[in-house]
Amino acid sequence: MDPDEYFNRTRMVIVAGKGGVGKTVLSAALARLAARTGRTALLVEVDGRNAVASLFDVAEIAYEETVIAPATDHTAAVRARSITPDTALVEWLDDHGMKLISKRLQRTGAIDVIATATPGIKDLLVLGKIKQLVVESDADVVIVDAPAAGHAMTFLRAPAMLAEMARSGPIHTQAHAVLEMLHDPRQCEVMLVTLPEETPVNELIDTAFQLEDDVGIQLAPVVVNGMYPVIDGLDTDLSNVDLSSVKSNLGAAKIAELRAAGDFRHKRSELQTSQRDRLADMLPLEQLALPYIFDADIGLEQIDELADALARAIEALDV
């Protein structure tokens, strides 16, 4: 599949996964890739962590849409904004003719009582705000860096829960509007990301089935992040190699250490492959593999490297 085709099929990609597996990095790489296809991408952060900012080397991600990577001759711009639950709740009350109570609720602290009394209301309103963006923003693709896996489930389940709880009124209306968006694969899909390790893979599998069963949202191919690039020849049995010339300048102990480093790398790599295979066995979704980057911390240059890898992986999909 061409990346261009991929971004044609849906307007919004929600990136979700366990903490520490590279959600934000993947979101950034997806945004850059979309920009390369000529689409203006809007990156939405919902946990107020400001993690996107350091990747793009900007001071912070504001509530208002701002450009974090300007358009060039070859690419469209990447924009970003941060939507936090508190701002979403206050803005929603304001927008629904409740400006006076929203002020008073904030002042008295009763806004916490509302949020506690109706669990999920903040999640619903963040999603509602995102829906509004999808409708109103002139960005071509919206990428949402979702909360960590456990919370991603509560986040995406909130609309269905509140649609059932509130039988009428503004929350009911909002919940149904968001559900309609979540159920429409042309409007959004979820891209799950994991590391090729036991616990994150298990968590991804659980999350995938729950999302399908409980939320009914379209699932994109899953991303396996941090795959060690294969080094050919690490399984060479060095005992069969004539080492006499090497030994004279290195010594047997150093050679043994070198082999240990190679073996370690080889074992971790095999472990990764076996986890990837296990994921394929247990979850009937295509996989996009992204390489581990050994030589540098993740910055814009590495994001672009990952966007390259993502493009190749998407092209290799046989859909």
Partner: peptide, 29 residues
């Protein structure tokens, strides 16, 4: 893993050297 100053020149060692270099670059970071 030990850091090599001199590098073995046999071709069979190339992949091992690459692993060695990567692990050390990572360890330094």
């Amino acid at each position: 893993f030990v850091r090599l100053k001199r590098r073995p020149r046999a071709p069979e060692f190339e992949p091992f050297l690459q692993a060695h270099d990567e692990l050390h670059a990572l360890a330094d970071r």
